[in-house]
Write a protein that binds this DNA or RNA. Structure first.
Lengths: 137, 137
DNA sequence: GTATTTTTGCAATAGTGTTGCAAGTTTAAA
DNA sequence: TTTAAACTTGCAACACTATTGCAAAAATAC
């Protein structure tokens, strides 16, 4: 709860119920959350629109980041310390379990550098690995 | 045109106008195409639904694969030779240009292996790199 | 405690993807 | 080459997802 208020204050955001609850969802849950997950957990309390706007605010502030997926959905996960407003430093690998379908941030596994063809300048790299997670093995 | 019919025949698909035209779009275009791109190029000829179904058919057959994105859209790109029905072998890196927003398949750059934490078994890995492409440098 | 700023919920709207079915096209077989 | 069977398409309707404007409500600042 301390941590929660800290994050909101550090980012100069008003303390509101929706922000507290949605942020808490992320803090409790190590994995990534889809919009649908968040709505399922808060949908009866907050309006859908509020959920959208809250998530967008968090992304803008660098509190959460989104994870690319192959189906057309967006997954959100907490950023680590060094993200700041308008600039994400999200260079860890994401793991999607084929069995339980959870997405996990592998914070300790950094995205390796790759050698690009001549003329290409990299800026940021995302990596998503599929497979079987620790819980489902 | 030869190539086009070859691909369709090899996959035991009926030769229809929509399949020919949409497949040709991919053959002409080295990069990836969003659903919207495809509809823009064929939308006045074919129904939206036909485009959806054609793309789905191509994915099922292993003719195209989809590329994960951070916004909630799907990008499609041609598979290389070794894809087959129901099973994709898509292990090259994708590059999204921050300037022209095109997505390019870097067929020669393979996704590097990463060491996962204990208990995690990898199956497939996707990698998307952002930056400036050869044309925009 | 009050004024200002920000956030929320509602309603309306726009965009995206899916399904069933009849009509049309392609394929295969006579 | 003609015909029957199989498959594909377009339309309409629907379901789901996301966005916007605005008034009411809440949070912050004074």
């Amino acid at each position: 709860m301390e941590q929660l208020l800290d994050i909101l204050k550090k980012n100069r955001l008003s303390i509101t119920d929706s922000r507290k609850q949605i942020l808490q969802l992320f803090l409790k849950n190590n994995g990534a959350l889809a919009h649908a997950d968040i709505e399922k957990n808060t949908g009866e309390i907050f309006d859908r629109v509020t959920v959208y706007r809250t998530l967008q605010t968090f992304v803008d502030k660098g509190i959460i980041h989104n994870i690319p997926t192959t189906d057309n959905s967006i997954l959100y996960a907490l950023c680590k310390e060094n993200c700041e407003e308008g600039h994400h430093h999200d260079n860890h690998v994401h793991f999607i379990c084929d069995s339980c379908h959870k997405t996990i941030c592998l914070d300790d596994v950094t995205v390796p550098a790759v050698k690009l063809p001549k003329g290409f300048t990299p800026n940021q790299a995302e990596m998503v690995v599929n497979g079987v997670c620790d819980d489902c093995k």
